[in-house]
Each structure stands twice: as structure tokens, then as C-alpha cells.
Design a protein around this nucleic acid. Structure first.
Lengths: 144, 144
DNA sequence: GTAATCCCTCTAGCGACTAGAGGTTCAAGA
DNA sequence: TCTTGAACCTCTAGTCGCTAGAGGGATTAC
């Protein structure tokens, strides 16, 4: 009826130490234990772990996941906050895509710049890595 | 003639503790010191720090940067390896973009799914976060 | 009963920084 | 020359989301 931590891992794809880590961080409730002190999970725990996993795959930080779980415990609350988390994450993902697209353009330029030269001294790749000035688009430090 | 660490920071945009960190990690040579034990950099150090910064902005891991710097010290070597690093990074960036694009699609679906409902119980956003099954594209765990 | 596999806790490490404590040096103005 | 305040020094510890390993106990299938 109950699952061991290994079962949970197999069913969700979340690694065993990671499951313990989520418990320590309060994303999962501490489950019952067997007589020998091993974790025994119920189906509801499995579901929550799936929820967490999906959120992580979507790139949500653990704090956001914690907020969503909290929210889920209060069925009568308005769900504005859940909307907000999704919208924020969407915005963040779009920002990252835009940033990476700029990087892609420049890396492409760099990677194809070494046409005929064969020693380091004349290597355009190395030059291009060094020279931000050659780079048209302003790729700034914020997130990669 | 020489720069203090603060000058270096101002000129490159790299924060002071980060410069010290790069020195500890061997990306920057340990510079001369003033009588009072403060770092004094030469123009060549400034150039290298710019190089490092640009590489970091492009997403290169420090190991790759170390390799490039090493390469730069040996002007007669063929530059195949530099090409390789650029090409690898380009591939990695493209993989990340593809992944994020999938996430974007799903987050968009999630974020717009909460049309009329107003309490948590009926919130499609929360449901969507939980249910990987509703998700068409297989977004796997590898890099965000 | 025994062996293989699983599970337990605890600590430390990853990458690339960032923050803070507690103290010293420098540069400019009076 | 003295003083002030900003900049500098070293060192330790924290961030995030895990992952690896040591050293041991529990469970399960045969």
C-alpha cells in the first residue's frame, strides 16, 4: 500500500537523495516510518512529488513551489497568486530566451570567424572572445 | 600607471570580490602589490579581465576560459581547440534555447488557463502545474 | 539463514560568485 | 603634518539545487 523512497524515485524520476532533500526543505511532508526507520509514502505524497518535479522542470525556483503548495492547502483562497507565479515565470523564460538568442548570434559569428588561420597568433576566435567591442549586441551579465 | 582593484572593477564592470575570486581560481595572475599590500594591476591584466568577462557573458564555464587562456600563452599552437570551444558553446546555447522554447509554450498554456475561476479549488493553473500528463511536449530535466 | 539490495544519517562538494566581519592603507584636504 | 573617509586586505560562510561518499542498519527473495 505504501511506497519506499526507492519506489517514489522510480515512479517520478526524482533521485532518492533529492527526495530526502525536498523533505528537509519542507516541500514534502515527513512521511511515516517503518519499524526499521525507513520512509513509507502514501499516494498523496507521490502526487505531490510529481507536482514538484513538474514545477522544477518548468524552471520554478523552490520558493515559488513552496508558495504554490501553501496555496493548494487553502482551497478557498483566490488563485490570483498562482496566476502571478505562472506569469512571472513565463516572463523570466522569455527574457532568458531573448538573451540566449543574442548570445547565439555572437557565438555563431565567433565560431565561424576562424576560416583559414591555423595558429593561435592569428586566431580570430581567440580575438573575438577577447573583444567585446567587436560585438554588436549588448549582452549583459544578467542570467545566462 | 597601475590600477587598483577598484579601478579594474570600474573599467570592466567585474565586481571587486569577483576579481579576487578569479585570482584565487588562477584565471588572473597574482599582481604586484603596493607597499601596503594592495593589488596593483598592469594594462595587460585589464585586458585579460575583459577577456574573461566577455567569455563569462557568453556563458563559457571557467574551465573553458582557463583552456583558452592557456592556449593564448602558446602562440604557435594550432587554434583548433579554440574553434572547438566556441562550437561546443554554440551547440550548448542552441540546446538551451530549444529547451526554453518548449517551456515557454507550456507556461503560456498554463498561465492562460485560469480564465474565469477564482478560488484555488478550481484553479487550472495549479492543476496544470501538477499534471505533467496535460503537457504535450516532453520537457526533460537536463538544463533549464 | 544468508546474501543482495535497499535504506538510514551525516558531512562535504559542485559552480560562480556574494556578503559580512574585523582590521589596514591610501589619497585628498585643512 | 594630521585627519578623515573611502577603498583596500583576509577570512569565513552563505547562496541554489542538488550530488557523492562514508559508515552503518533494514528488508526481501531465495
Amino acid at each position: 500500500m505504501d511506497f519506499s523512497i526507492g519506489e517514489m524515485s522510480k515512479r517520478t524520476g526524482v533521485k532518492v537523495p533529492t527526495i530526502r532533500y525536498y523533505e528537509k526543505e519542507g516541500l514534502l511532508n515527513a512521511p511515516m516510518r517503518s519499524r526499521g526507520n525507513q520512509r513509507r509514502y502514501r499516494p498523496a505524497d507521490l502526487e505531490r512529488l510529481g507536482f514538484i518535479r513538474h514545477c522544477r522542470e518548468l524552471g520554478l525556483p523552490m520558493t515559488a513551489i513552496r508558495d504554490l503548495i501553501e496555496l493548494g492547502q487553502h482551497p478557498d483562497k483566490p488563485c490570483r497568486q498562482a496566476d502571478r507565479i505562472a506569469a512571472d515565470q513565463l516572463k523570466a523564460v522569455r527574457r532568458r530566451i531573448a538573451h540566449l538568442t543574442r548570445l547565439e548570434a555572437e557565438l555563431k559569428r565567433i565560431a565561424t570567424s576562424c576560416k583559414g588561420s591555423h595558429t593561435v597568433t592569428e586566431c580570430n576566435v581567440l580575438k573575438a572572445f577577447g573583444d567585446h567591442g567587436l560585438c554588436q549586441s549588448g549582452h549583459s551579465a544578467e542570467d545566462a
